[in-house]
Amino acid sequence: MLSRVAERIYWMARYVERAENTARIINVNTNLLLDLPKKVTLGWQPLIDITGIKKLYNEHYPEVNERNVVKFLIADTRNFGSLINSLNAARENGRTIRDVIPREGWEKVNDLYLYTKNQLPQALSRRNRYDFLGHIINSTQGITGLLAGTMTHNFGYDFLRIGRNLERADMTSRIIDVRSANLLPEESEDLPPYETIQWMSVLQSLSAYQNYRQQVQTRVQRGEVLKYLLQDIYFPRAFNHCIREVQGSLKNLPRHMGPIRQLNLIIRSVETTQFDNMSKKALHRYIDNLQLQLAKLHKAISTTYFSIQDEKPTKAKKKKSKVTKKSGGKAKPSASAVSHSAGSAN
């Protein structure tokens, strides 16, 4: 499989997943605000922090309020991580690999982009937002399911799963980080019932509430939720599960030593760390580091499979010369190769 094709499949999957996650966090925040008393002013700042776009946001908007934040996250093309931009990037990556993925897969991605573009004006009002975001989540889940059921499960499919699960792991860790550090700064004694509600919202944004109740069976509390979302190996949006999915896919691929080594470091760290009584500060530091490790994993995958510019051909005899170094320099990306990582946006 061509590196370019693999890379575009990977990014298409990441962007589709990113769109879904963006829809999820907006939806849950909207709901959460309805439950909280007026004097708890959590507001919308956390969503800006989760997506790592604080600086960019402040450049364009004078204040943090529902209208502005939702607009920035859904419709603003200046925000490279906005829903509309993610879907556009998914579509542009998908367009170039239309002959590799099943036709319906491309059509669904295309449809979703067009739907989103057409619905943008309505989506900004609180009344229509729930349906709009629900449609996004359903459609991206539909794309995942359709590809699972129709795409040949060869290398290409492995890259699809790697992209999706890396993005998912990334978002889960961001949500935990922001929700515990920023959104719940004062686990204040005078508002105990709301602590539970807030952790419930964390679970809900990951569709994890029901699963958590079944599996953990205790009341919703910080330590258990952290353990569940970071270490559980069964729940599909739990960090550990996502990383293990990446591991499974990588093992199908040739030359996976580099990425696997990096990945094993992450798994060992997540599985052996005690989260129960970790202080807010320590947790924040830990997740910061986890994100760094994820970025390293992406880099390892990218250099192994996508940009093998300067590697010596297996059968070539001579060593690298100046000439080939130059000729191996990356060509201008074509207009459609849309790939950047939000992981480095912190």
């Binding site: 890259f159 040739p254 499979y305 093998i308 051909p313 690298k320 000439v323």
Partner: peptide, 13 residues
């Protein structure tokens, strides 16, 4: 460098 043409694949050149 050997003046042969290679394509970049996930398995290498």
């Amino acid at each position: 460098d050997d003046d042969c043409v290679y394509m970049r694949t996930v398995e290498g050149l």
